[in-house]
Amino acid sequence: MTVEAVSETPAPVPAREVLGGVRGLKKHFPIHQGVFRRQVGAVKAIDGVDFDIFRGETLGLVGESGSGKSTTGRTILQLEKATAGSVTFEGTELTTLSTEKMRKLRPRMQMVFQDPHASLNPRMTVGSIIAEPLREHGVATGDERRQRVEELLSLVGLEAKHANRYPHEFSGGQRQRIGIARAIALNPDFIVCDEPIAALDVSIQAQVVNLLEDLQDVLGLTYLFISHDLSMVRHIADRVAVMYLGKIMELAPQEEMYAKPKHPYTQALLSAVPVPDPDVEENRRRVILEGDIPSPANPPSGCVFSTRCPMVQEKCRVDVPAFRELEPGHWVACHFAE
């Protein structure tokens, strides 16, 4: 993806309102070495990413470890400062916003973290954890606040009496519910869910995903759902973006992505996911990728996927493929996809 290519805007599907988006987003983490801590390179966690998020949708962001999907979520929420590019939310540019103005916007955009053990303060009661955003932003006080906490607890399937307990008294799934209650406390429009079910048991994953879906219906939420679980993303997402080494390889509506993947990486990725059905597994043709993901500190020239691509051509090692819209709403970064 070249810088020129980023100016092209993914065409919004008619009658859908753009809530926010990123253009040419980059996040490079510097590598320092030597006595003088000189910068000798950079880990290119995100290296030029463009997409829009429509109001009320779930955009799935999938990729393997090191693909930059979590950093993308964090950079959108300004938890990481972008190296280059823009992040907009309802038309407001976030990357240049002052801290004070950003703080005013924060209630509108929240995050659910992966690890429900690390993201809840063990010394705070569940009630005060959920009330903290209300307190920070001066939303409700006294009885009103207590009522709101009870309301939030019941929204996420917990009971009012749980407010006085501490996080360690809860199981992983219940803790994730507490994290979700905190995220929705301020009535946000947009929630970044960063691998919200990765740390949970299979039967508990379904509970949490069903809860997220129910809350979306009731509260009209927009999700950026970051996950490495392609089956779950198929289940929950309206559109899906596939990341590899800091770039988006393909972006398409969910059905199209899973039925007709156009990028060789997406094809390989989808074929690698095991299906819980022996008959299907027996007849499946797998594309087995050779080797490992290269280091984001030293990505391959040309197309970042060229070192593992089963259909690689000479051109791929030299030219960076543009992120092209092949069909309405279906974007691919590959020279040869059609």
């Binding site: 199981s171 799934g173 219940q174 048991d201 299979v202 039967s203 508990i204 994953q205 379904a206 509970q207 995903v209 069903n210 879906e213 392609l230 089956s231 779950m232 198929r234 289940h235 969910q254 059905e255 899973y258 989808l270 996911v273 299906v275 819980p276 059905d277 299907v280």
Partner: peptide
Amino acid sequence: SVPRVDQKGSKLVNIKGQP
């Protein structure tokens, strides 16, 4: 309770409660 990558299913089965 597990979604499948090869088909879009309906709502996932909730096994209520805890282990």
